[in-house]
Nucleic acid binder design. Structure first.
Lengths: 356, 356
DNA sequence: CAGCGTTTTGCAACCGAGTTTTTTAAAAAA
DNA sequence: TTTTTTAAAAAACTCGGTTGCAAAACGCTG
């Protein structure tokens, strides 16, 4: 029987024994560190079943775990995915984080997260901090204002954008099919009898997503020959409530249909409508983006454009993995994968707020 | 002028230049790697102001960043904090994540996050995965069922529990002062004229937090001589709605006051009440834990026990840092810090639902 | 049993920064 | 000018796995 490795036993406490190194395992199993390493990584050179079993036994018994830092240094791979989120308070973001976490874990990766809170400076800082930490790739839900830095990062390591694109393009992007979702909501409102539609937006949101939704909205209206407009409901202070009142009163009794461009706008809309009563004014129909749990409850259920967050997350990680594999497999020059835009279809949850 | 280091320039693209190493910087600045290292870490040996400036210039110009993996290996410190969250959909968790992220960043640390989704198996897996990744410390918002594994982890590296304790104790815990919050809500309802109070709970939630709140509730009632009880509102399916109806009807007109033990329960409560009308039935007062954005909106505003998530997050990171410093500073035996329970006071948001 | 191909295994050189020790140079004192 | 004191920089070794190369062990055939 091979003698106990020096560092394995701690006579003092018996509990907090010193960390074992691969060479300790090797010594105890009577093989070389290289062999243990090959065992741990399933490397080409097959080893005797007997050797394999002996190593397995020692590792099992000692509870040995290889030190990640040493591994990273040699292989320059960390199995870490960096994630930068603009606004974690948004349920879309938290659902996304859960999905990313699961998809990454399924591939043996962990997530390093940073939250910019919609502050470009923080986002830039997170970008460098995560890259410095050595993440293998980055998922960025950008708040805007760092397009150049993000593009530069994408030139240095795999980057996949989440939901929001950068102006110049050229970086992988996974997003919902916003045009279809807008069409779906317009459908629902039109079917509910709305004659004039408003898309309610937020002044501070100048993201590509908002613009895409606004464009799609305008296109849908003209294609169907419907009347309507884009209204900035949320504009810093409480001015929005007045503006909404105006909008609603202006069209009172005229079969108005409202679409909240995101969850925050919907929240404000609800606030404003609450003064009018518990159920919707007669003839008023509403629908919203972002599937908050409260959408089931308010007004007896609000028709919602729901994004398929789980699939989006899965595809993000999948695409990132592709890029990571390419980078580690091929050499510099040939490692160019063409940027790709991936749209994941969402679906419309039809609820009471757009019933006839 | 010192000649360009070999790896610094890339004639091909000019953009993706090879990573520089500390020795390249040293060569270019005409000093030794050790000197650059001392510069980077502000080590004791003072160097000539001129040397310092030259190194700074080269680092600035080349955009050199030390490789974290190499650093980690040598120092066995990663500046990574592992975070395991039970349920990210809960706004408490997402707010906490934002706070932790900010507090950690302020200390130069990044967060590695894992989400258990209230699954003990996933939690256990996350525990080992994060520890294997080499985090300096762990923040755990446990879903339960892993008390032994968590205690064992706490014996190996700094661990601070968030909100939910483990049965055996012995691990640092940061939590809200739930007893005070319960007292505050009872106060608010009593002041609003409620004569009989119900604490509405969720059957599947068997956490120490729920138990603490239930106990505090019972204590408050007996101290004030108020009538009341704990009612399980949410119990898997829709049975809860019926149970609530029963409760409300049973006390109709008797000045009932309801407290939702958490946000999910409150959501179900809202659902059930929605059928009765937009505003609360006469004489019924409600209050809830968990400060969701919707609490401002529903019923004209719902009185809420709000936790001070930012402070909780800050104290968690602070405490974890203390432990990390102790571990890295002192040797094994002396590194025992007594476990500590830190309670952060929250506050009551008084809103329309408990007005007289 | 020699000869040859195949697998298993060990040696030793890494990865890149940090740290201790030694050497060299410069400044101060004699 | 020479010797002593002090500081700055170079060289050498460390951290703990990984990996190219080559030697050793093994199995098979003639």
């Amino acid at each position: 029987m091979p003698k106990m490795a020096q560092t394995a036993d701690n006579w003092e406490t018996g509990c907090a024994m010193a960390q074992m190194r691969i060479k300790d395992i090797a010594a105890e199993a009577g093989v070389s560190p290289a062999t243990v390493s090959r065992y741990l990584n399933n490397r080409p050179g097959q080893m005797t079943e007997e050797t394999r079993a002996r190593i397995a036994e020692v590792i099992e018994r000692t509870g040995y775990r290889p030190r990640a830092a040493a591994r990273n240094l040699r292989s320059s791979r960390t199995n870490l995915i960096g994630v930068i989120l603009a606004d974690i308070a948004n349920p879309f973001s938290s659902a996304m984080l859960e999905g990313l976490s699961a998809s990454a874990a399924a591939r043996g990766c962990s997530l390093m997260t940073a939250i910019s809170g919609n502050d470009p400076a923080k986002e830039a800082e997170s970008l460098t901090r995560l890259i410095d930490a050595g993440v293998d790739g980055l998922v960025v839900n950008t708040c805007g204002g760092n397009d150049k830095a993000i593009a530069a990062a994408a030139g240095r390591l795999p980057v996949v954008l989440l939901d929001r694109d950068v102006a110049a393009g050229g970086v992988d992007l996974v997003t919902s099919n916003n045009r279809e979702l807008v069409a779906g909501l317009v459908d629902a409102l039109a079917a509910a009898g709305s004659e004039r539609l408003c898309l309610l937006t937020e002044a501070s949101d100048d993201s590509p997503v908002r613009r895409e939704r606004a464009e799609a909205f305008a296109d849908e209206l003209s294609q169907r020959g419907l009347a309507g407009e884009v209204v900035t409901l949320v504009d810093g202070g409480a001015t929005g409530a007045g503006r909404l009142d105006e909008t609603i009163r202006g069209y009172a009794g005229k079969r108005l249909g409202l679409i909240a461009a995101n969850g925050l706008v919907f929240l404000r809309l609800t606030e404003a409508l609450a003064q009018l009563g518990p159920s919707l004014p007669a003839g008023l129909k509403i629908a919203t983006f972002d599937d908050y749990p409260w959408n089931h409850v308010l007004f007896g259920g609000v028709t919602t454009a729901a994004q398929d967050t789980l699939t989006i997350a899965e595809r993000v990680v999948e695409r990132l993995s592709e890029r990571i594999d390419v980078v580690t497999t091929t050499v510099g020059e040939a490692a160019k994968l063409a940027p790709k835009r991936i749209e994941i279809p969402g679906h419309i949850e039809h609820r009471a707020s757009t019933s006839r």
